[in-house]
Design a protein around this nucleic acid. Structure first.
Lengths: 191, 191
DNA sequence: TATAATATTGAACAATGTTTATTTTTATGT
DNA sequence: ACATAAAAATAAACATTGTTCAATATTATA
């Protein structure tokens, strides 16, 4: 059996990403195996290696779509052109919500150590990051500082969500992540 | 072959931790397999499961010792009772240095998603965390805020190191992590 | 010395990523 | 229309994981 022409190569790639994503959403990153994905696709494991170099390639592709989706969410949120501090607060809230709404996708994207050196991935990262930088520009001294502030904001949100997801240090009980983020924004950005 | 009495059960556990640690240091977290560890110990895989519930138990034990070591490093650093802001800066520096000196141990400890619910681990976490909180107490409004500040500081250091290790966002090139940390401390703690 | 307790092994199982020869289907050229 | 080349998909195999467990070897005990 071969070239069933049900799908073009590109369609097949998208199918793999979609199925992989569904598996991660439903059962978590540990269920993302070549056999699971191709079975859901209606193909056999070998097929995956026609589409991606290895299983990490599929992971990278799933993560890239997560980033693209998140970038789109940000774009909608930042549409209103509210005051910088208000927009900043919305960005932070959106990040926290992403982790809450799709914890498994968040884990695959941010808490799974994988080398993502594809060009697509780097582009998607900047799709998100550049928006954050842009919001920070009006309240930063210059361009470089805005970029650094974006990295610091990103790192902090990241770290707080990691603490929350790992259950370490009683985040979510004693000090909810929302409160930590609020304190950080207030203190750091004088928000 | 059995009960060779070369080691007591406790010695055997320590041996496993030591060998596991050596493997991680030399070859990274991915090389930490039951067979690798027990081979280095001079035993067979089954033995590991007399000592730990599973391989994650060994990981947790290795991470616990990493935390204990880091806590000791902090203790030495904070011995001098310098000014709070100076001590804070030293804590941050120590964290960055830990990642630089032992990147694989750092990755196993902070960038590998594993459930650590042992009591020992929780204790070791607090061995580090309580020192951070203590340093922050004099420059925080009250006890609760000091604890929250500690979590925020921890999250930020964490996130910045993750960015550095993942190679994302050009941390280390355009904006070195040291500079990001410095900016964060200055801005957040008015240091 | 016989027996019980315990430590260790070795082999087995299922699941993983990955490779490759083979087969099946489609495209191409005459 | 047919033969042949190209491509796609498969099935089977391999090595490596974590993990379990009956069998075995050693020590302790009665």
């Amino acid at each position: 059996m071969a070239r069933r022409k049900d799908h073009t190569r590109e369609e097949l790639t998208q199918l793999a990403i979609q199925c992989g994503r569904d598996i991660v959403v439903a059962e978590g990153p540990s269920a993302l195996s070549a056999r699971n994905v191709t079975k859901l696709m209606g193909y056999t494991p070998g097929t995956l290696y026609n589409l991606f170099e290895n299983i990490d390639g599929l992971t990278a592709a799933i993560n890239t779509t997560s980033l693209i989706n998140f970038a789109e969410t940000l774009r909608c949120i930042l549409r209103d052109h509210a005051k910088p501090k208000k927009r900043l607060s919305k960005i932070a809230q959106a990040y926290l919500e992403f982790q809450l709404r799709e914890p498994h996708l968040w884990t695959l994207l941010f808490a799974t150590p994988i080398q993502h050196d594809s060009e697509d991935y780097r582009t998607a990262i900047h799709l998100v990051f550049d928006q954050v930088t842009e919001v920070l520009l009006p309240i930063s001294k210059n361009n470089k500082v805005a970029r650094q502030n974006a990295k610091i904001l990103w790192s902090t949100l990241h770290g707080i969500c990691l603490l929350r997801s790992s259950g370490k240090l009683d985040v979510s009980e004693a000090d909810p992540s929302e409160e930590l983020v609020k304190r950080f924004l207030n203190q750091y950005f004088k928000l």
